[in-house]
């Protein structure tokens, strides 16, 4: 969890569903100006973010919320929830299709902690990774779906795709040559492990659309088809 305390009176935290911004008690126009300028300053960090705002006892009208939502939307930020202690505000939020405290922040109480094994962290993405999507992750990425042309995945670790790889992938972006890339069907626009690219490699043109695992062996990319393993 990253917490960045601004000069102004609000805080920003990461939580499961996006970013949680707790706003201060000043005049609403003032708070909004401060928030928007903060977002503009850190536009890279906020770009594409989903945001919930915590407003405490403050009562917000639908028009004020809609205004905030439009202003955020113009800056590439999606407002999806307004958390407040006021029932009036909750009703207003719901009328705009925003989530409220009731529908967000359900704590995980299952009792399952982190695995006791010495594994590496990974994220599981159960969807098609579509054109225009860029996934940058410090760790390993597992995709249960296709990676379409125009999509890219960059990881410090390995990439596993239970589907068709047709976009661009780069494993081991920090130089680790022990990473692998696996896919069920293989037709990438570009592929790279550490600093070695498949572009220009003769094997690249001969790639079969079959389940494959790609590793680095002797400073070259090695292509290992699943069907040859038997």
């Amino acid at each position: 969890m990253t917490e960045l305390k601004a000069k102004t009176d609000f805080s920003i935290k990461g939580f499961k569903e996006g970013l949680l911004i707790t706003l201060g008690h000043e005049d609403w126009d003032e708070v909004q100006i401060q928030l928007l300028s903060q977002i503009e300053e850190k536009s890279k960090f906020f770009s594409g973010a989903k945001v919930a705002v915590e407003i405490g006892e403050r009562v917000l009208h639908a028009a004020e919320m809609a205004g905030l939502r439009d202003a955020l939307s113009d800056r590439g930020v999606k407002l999806f929830a307004v958390l407040s202690n006021s029932q009036v505000t909750d009703v207003n939020a719901e009328s705009l299709g925003l989530k409220t405290r009731k529908s967000v922040l359900k704590e995980n109480t299952s009792g399952f902690g982190p695995a006791a094994l010495d594994g590496k962290p990974a994220i599981l993405l159960q969807k098609t990774i579509r054109s225009g999507t860029s996934i940058k992750y410090a760790g390993n990425v597992i995709v249960d779906g296709d990676v379409n042309p125009g999509a890219e995945i960059l990881t410090t670790g390995s990439i596993f795709i239970w589907g068709k790889l047709r976009g661009s992938v780069h494993a081991g972006v920090e130089g680790s040559e022990s990473e692998t890339i696996c896919a069920m069907e293989f037709d990438p626009i570009n592929l790279r492990i550490a600093n070695i690219s498949l572009k220009g490699n003769k094997l690249f043109r001969k790639l079969k659309r079959k389940p494959v695992r790609i590793t680095i062996a002797n400073s070259k990319l090695a292509i290992d088809y699943w069907e040859n393993r038997k």
């Binding site: 594409g48 999606k78 969807k127 579509r130 054109s131 225009g132 999507t133 379409n148 042309p149 125009g150």
Partner: peptide, 13 residues
């Protein structure tokens, strides 16, 4: 390709 991008945005919205 453009339709794919649009579908991605619609999903995220």
């Amino acid at each position: 390709r453009d339709a794919d991008r649009i579908i991605g945005i619609i999903e995220s919205e």
